[in-house]
Every structure is written in C-alpha cells, then in structure tokens.
Amino acid sequence: MLEVKDLQKSYEKDKPALTNISFDIKPGTFVAIIGPSGAGKTTILRSLNQLIKDDGGQILLDGNDIRTANKTQLRKYRRQIGMVFQNYNLVERLTVIENVLHGRLGYKSTLAGVFGRYTQEEKEEAMSLLKKVGLENFALQRCSELSGGQKQRVGIARSLIQHPKVILCDEPIASLDPASAQNVMELLKDLTEEYNLICIANLHQINMAKKYADQIIGIRKGKLVFDENADLLSEDILRTLYDQDITKELE
C-alpha cells in the first residue's frame, strides 16, 4: 500500500511545483498520471523515491515514511522501488544481462557491488526475467545494439530484479514507436498483476492510459484534479485538465 499525503514541493520560492498532493494506491494496481507538460508529473514520481527532495508531506510505503529515512534506510526503500526511464538510462557499453544485474546492487555489499560479483542465483534470475521480457537471446548483446523497445524492456527487467513493491515509469513509451509502445504497456500491465505490484506511469497518451490503467491521477499546475477509477475519466475532466478540446485524441 502506497499512501501519499499533502506532498509539497517548490523549486523556486513562491512558485509551487506541487501543492498538497494526496493519493492512495493498493498493490496490484496500474496507475497512470496524466496532465499537461510542466504540470509536475516528473516531480511527483521522483519524490516518491526521493531523487528529488520534496518540501513537505508524507510518503508511506506499507506504513513507513520514506521521507524521514536516513541515508542507509533510504537505500533500503529505494531497492523496493524500481524505476523505468524515458531514455532507458542503461549503461550502453555493457551487456544486457550486466544491466539487468545492476538492479541487484542495492542488496550487495559495497565491495561485491564495486567488482560486479553476482551469485549464481542472481544470474539465473536475471536470465529468467530476460525470458519474461522476451530478450533471452540477447543476454550477451551490448545495449547500444538494441532497439528502443528492447532497451526499455531491459530497463523493466532491471527494475524487476530489485523485487520491488513499486515500479515508477516516467514516460516509458514516449521514445517508442506505436507497436513497441503497446508491447511495453502490455508487459507492464501483466507484470503488475503477476507480481501484485504498484506500477505508476507518467503518460502523455490518454488513450493508452484509458486502455491499460486501473486508476488515473490527473495533475494540473501542481494540483491534483482527478483521482479515480480509469473508467470515470470523462471528456469534461480532460477539458479542464488540458484547457482544451482533445476529444479527438480519445477516438
């Protein structure tokens, strides 16, 4: 269970990027955060694993507040929270399996991590996850040689090997062609159910949000304006959210 209460953040004084954001998410839920550019979606997502230090509020993961954790505790929370990036953020020169195994670093001693010593079980798990995302034949390929969709699936495998409770995806499909995008969204959706995860994705594609998400959160100018079951997203709400008529996009 992830509970966010009164989350606040301003990058510059008197210019709040987030004001009093509150929402709850149950395990096994696929959540889409939508809203116009600059609304604060990235800010919310990065506050959730404290890559951005917010200014106030509570972020409770199974009842424990991530915000008040010290450095060591924070690393322990972070390894329960996977993250998937728009630009994949892989180490392009390393192989696919090495990148997947990077997800284990949070569990390793400094020395083992520094020298990249992984156990047989970890390697086997990495292989089975690669199979799950459909890349078992690419394990020893360099990441720079993959397509965008494949890279994103490596990113997803890297977050899964963390054994996360939550996966955060910042515009996971923004750099992908429509077919790969479908593919990645379906994968995320299936994984959410299979592992009973909380998956939160920032999306610009409203049709994708409607199609795959269970719950939709709408953000506008740093304020939460919608937080309901995906079926309840209406054109009216979209109009207030985006200040314009985008019914066409829904078609």
Binding site: L94, T95, I97, G116, Q120, K123, E124, L140
Partner: peptide
C-alpha cells in the same frame, strides 16, 4: 551443486 552451467555476463569482445 545441481549442474547449472556458469552464466556468462559478457563475451570476449
């Protein structure tokens, strides 16, 4: 150990 082959992380490049 149950015979599981060593999994390589990278090939000689």
């Amino acid at each position: 150990l149950p015979d599981s082959p060593e999994i390589k992380l990278h090939e000689k490049s």
